[in-house]
Structure formats: C-alpha cells, structure tokens
C-alpha cells in the first residue's frame, strides 16, 4: 500500500513538472531569443484556462475549449507583443519588469471585468474520466496521465521544431546573433511575434489542462509563474533542455517533499508537531534546492548550452 502511494505521488510530481515545463519552455524561449523577462506569462496561462472553460461551457466540448485556449492565448500573446512588449526589447530589465507587472494588473482586472469574481469550473472530458490501476492495487486518474503524455509530446515536438525546421533554425540563430540574421534578410519583427505567440500558446495549453483539475480563477497564473521562474533559474535561462529537467525536478521534489517530510519528522516528533514542521519545511523545499544548486552553479544547470 505504501509503495502504491509512493508511485501515485511520483506521478503527481511528474504531472506538476510537465505543467511547469509548458510554462517554463515559453518563458525561457522568450528570454533566450528576445532577452525579455515576461512577468505576464502567468496571465496568458489564465487566459488559456478562461477561454477553455468559457468555450467548454458554451459548446459542451472540452476539446473545442482546448483549441480555443490555444487560439486565445496565442492571440493575446501576439497582441501584447505588437502593442507593448515590442517596445521593451532594447530596454533594461527593470523597465521590462514594471511593464509586464502593469500587464498583469490589466489582464487580471480585465478578466474579472469580463467573467466576474467567481471561479469557473471545467469538467474533465468524459473520454479521460476513468482511472488506471497502478501496481500495488491503487487507482490513478487517467486525465493526469494524459497531461503527462501531452507534456512529453510537446517536449518532443519542441525539440523537433527547434532542431529540424527552418523556423527552429531561425530561432536558434536569433538567440546567438540577432543583428546577423536581420542582415541576412530574416524578418526579425515577425519572428519575435511568432516566438512570443508560441510561448503564449504553450502557457494557455497548460492553463486549460490544469483548469480541469482546479478551479479557473483570476490570479491562478502567478503562483505557477513563480514556480516556472524557479524552474528556469535551476535549468539555466534560455535552455529548453534545462527547463525540462528543472521542471521535472521541481515538480517531483515539491510533491514528494510534501508527502515524505511530515513522515520523516514523524520518526522523532509527535504527529501534530511533525505535520507542522514537515509541512512548513516542505513548502520551502524547492527554494532550498534552488539555493543549493545556485551555490554550486550560479547560472543554472545547463546555462550556455541552450
């Protein structure tokens, strides 16, 4: 029984990691290519979740909602890039932080304006509503496994896109020398809008998928955004491989920490005390891991390789 519980927690950690990867991949891509720190990435996640919930409620189909979330987040990303972010590429990080912080305020209040303050609910699609038997005899929700599957597909897709296609070649070239590819006749402005919209669509996809597990509400994006920051700092900013490994690491460490630390302290403390100390430490664990990794490698695990 204990083993089954452990496997379940590892899968939960993987599912959190996959979701973080979808967020972190966009963030790290945008930073790597455009040098932009985008705090509003969490808002795009929220846009995806709201689009999915609204369309699913209207049409009755989760799948249409999923398509809508991709479209809405990509469109919101493109609009934001054209209207605001484009003016920030040459600026220092301070201006980028402030402008994208302002965007969060606009997005959050705008969404509250459109949808009201009450959370929306999104049902898991009926095709994925079942559960799968795990070794050890317990059941695991099929939907969560599907999220892990989607994450793996996206990771493979991104790898192929960046290493095998013309667009990917331009993205890589944009990372290493933007003046040169502009001089070679690549339309850099359009390339930047595309990359931003791609990152936004990934965030929207993550928001839509998680929306079926939690409630869809204003402010849902920021906690995830901050975890995604931890992920890309651990992985090395600009590296997609680093984002993948960092995301899985953070997801698994966070989930297992919340599961194991209270039990660990239970070995030598009273149960109520153990839950308290273990719980408090578990909520800080990933930041401790981040600090340790940075103490050894200040630029993350895979900096300079991506």
């Amino acid at each position: 029984m204990q083993l089954a519980l452990f496997i379940e927690q590892v899968l939960n950690g993987l599912q959190l990691g996959v979701m973080l990867f979808l967020m972190a991949a966009g963030l790290t891509l945008i930073f790597g290519v455009m040098g932009l720190i985008n705090l509003a990435h969490g808002s795009l996640y929220m846009v995806g979740a709201f689009a999915c919930a609204a369309v699913a409620a209207w049409t009755g189909s989760f799948w249409l909602g999923l398509v809508a979330s991709l479209a809405a987040a990509a469109a919101a990303g493109a609009v934001v890039e054209l209207a605001v972010v484009r003016r920030l590429y040459g600026r220092d990080h301070l201006d980028q932080v402030l402008a994208t912080f302002a965007l969060i305020l606009v997005f959050s209040e705008g969404t509250r304006w459109l949808f009201g303050s009450f959370p929306l609910y999104l049902d898991i699609p009926p095709q994925l509503a079942g559960a799968v038997a795990l070794p050890g005899g317990s059941q695991y929700p099929l939907y969560r496994l599907a999220i892990i599957g989607v994450g793996v597909l996206v990771a493979v897709g991104l790898y192929l896109l960046i290493s095998r296609t013309r667009l990917g070649m331009r993205i890589r070239a944009g990372e290493s020398d933007r003046e040169m590819i502009a001089a070679l006749g690549v339309d850099v402005a359009t390339l930047y809008t595309l990359v931003f919209a791609l990152g936004a669509a990934l965030a929207g996809l993550a928001g839509a998928m998680v929306g079926a597990l939690q409630s869809v509400q204003v402010g849902m994006g920021e906690p995830v955004l901050i975890l995604a920051f931890v992920v890309i700092v651990i992985g090395g900013i600009g590296s997609i491989k680093g984002a993948l490994i960092g995301a899985v690491l953070v997801g698994v460490v966070d989930t297992l920490g919340r599961f194991l630390l209270p039990q660990l302290f239970g070995l030598f403390l009273a149960p109520s005390q153990a839950g308290l100390v273990g719980g408090a430490l578990a909520s800080m664990l990933i930041y401790v891991v981040m600090a340790l990794i940075l103490a050894v490698r200040p630029r993350g695990l895979f900096a300079g390789e991506g």
Binding site: F31, I37, H93, V97, I226, F229, V230, I232, V233, I237, Y287, M290, A291, L294, P298, R299, G300
Partner: peptide, 10 residues
C-alpha cells in the same frame, strides 16, 4: 535576470 528571479523566489 537571475538576480530578479532569485530574489523573487526567496
């Protein structure tokens, strides 16, 4: 950017 994100994380 690392500094921005790390201070945020702490």
């Amino acid at each position: 950017v690392y500094f921005i994100m790390i201070t945020l994380a702490f």
